[in-house]
Design a binder for these strands. Sequence first.
DNA 1: AAAAAACTGGACTATTTGGTCAGGAAATTG
DNA 2: CAATTTCCTGACCAAATAGTCCAGTTTTTT
Lengths: 228, 228
Amino acid sequence: MSRQTEPDSPETKRTASSGSKRKKVRPGRIRERNRERILMAAEKEFSRNGFGATTVQKIADSAGLPKSNVLYYFSNKKRIYYALMDDIMGRWNEMFSKIQPEDDPATTLANFIRAKVELSRTHPLASRLFALEIIQGAPVLKDHLSTTMREWVQARAGVIQQWIDAGRMAPVDPVQLILLIWSSTQHYADFQVQILAIEDKREYTESDFQHAADFLTSVILRGCGLAP
Amino acid sequence: MSRQTEPDSPETKRTASSGSKRKKVRPGRIRERNRERILMAAEKEFSRNGFGATTVQKIADSAGLPKSNVLYYFSNKKRIYYALMDDIMGRWNEMFSKIQPEDDPATTLANFIRAKVELSRTHPLASRLFALEIIQGAPVLKDHLSTTMREWVQARAGVIQQWIDAGRMAPVDPVQLILLIWSSTQHYADFQVQILAIEDKREYTESDFQHAADFLTSVILRGCGLAP
DNA sequence: AAAAAACTGGACTATTTGGTCAGGAAATTG
DNA sequence: CAATTTCCTGACCAAATAGTCCAGTTTTTT
């Protein structure tokens, strides 16, 4: 019966910050700290092994807490996963500012590319976890994709289209352009091992990201007719 | 003890085509057909759930064979996984032809992009399975990445560098360029759900791939100074 | 047609796993 | 301080899983 291998939809999750039912909950620094520990540990384990292959015990070990304690904070494995997805989507949502038709195309796109590369650098685990979720059919995020994220992309695509109509950049499919930036930047986090192996390195350096961002900016901007 | 969640290295795998020890093995159509069935089923299951969360039983069901039969062909779950990886890498290896300094940069890159998009279209499961493996740290393929694939990329990068030196295209980092093409094309298979959700579609059509390939070719070629 | 080899499938097992629970420790409150 | 609420945990369990075993069946070879 409880044979699900992928989490199903998040019904009654509670992000703790919005502790609804409880009476007087003053967060309590220990509580908050443990919750954070668990989530960090879970991000690590889930992103390394995927949801199905990650055991609660491993998360607990990695967080330095007994398993029962983990299950005290999050009533079951899925809830941990949902909480993580929530965090990730929230972070991304607030990361990229709105764009306006008046903005300069080149600057705006360049900023976007840099911000996204930066995100791959600072949050590689989250990036990989997101990728795993999507590749496996987005059992949890499917809804989010077709609402929030869809609107996010369409809004930006609209502005890009206006730039094109005004002759301020080459006529390229705006949605495709966003996807291109998305994929090429995400790649640095997700396929890290492959890139390191190909470049014969042990780990990324600061300048690798700089270099990557420069490369992407230059090629994509030129590709959009935004540079000589 | 047998607590591995990720497969470890393939020691004594046998690709069946090179049945080494057996005496007189005339493949036998049933044997070959079943093996193929199992691998197809496994590709489906592994790419949907990852290695750890996929059960041998599910593979068996999906292949329409009893579990014991699956384990007769492949002595354990890891062997199935290795065999799949082997197939995938083999297919990719032979897919892309060598390139020569005399070749035309624009045509060659365009062909490469098209071939890679086509691969995403015809073998989405394999693409996702590969992605899962890499994202999770390439426990099985790590070695392959730093040998075969590394050489593959470096060889191509060398030719691209020659094109640049000869002033036949803009001076962009050749390795980064290959990575860009790799990631942006692979993306169509791996993040299918995300793309479909954003574009509000149920499934890809033939022309979506055509469109994607056109877009990528135009932007990347222009980005390399290979188009007006 | 007999012998050998290849294959099939049900029954079984040792281990692992997610999750429960009852009771104890700490903190908070009156 | 005592009462009450909140927080924590070891022991436990039912379900699931990878892999074994072997008796029987089918196919191939002699």
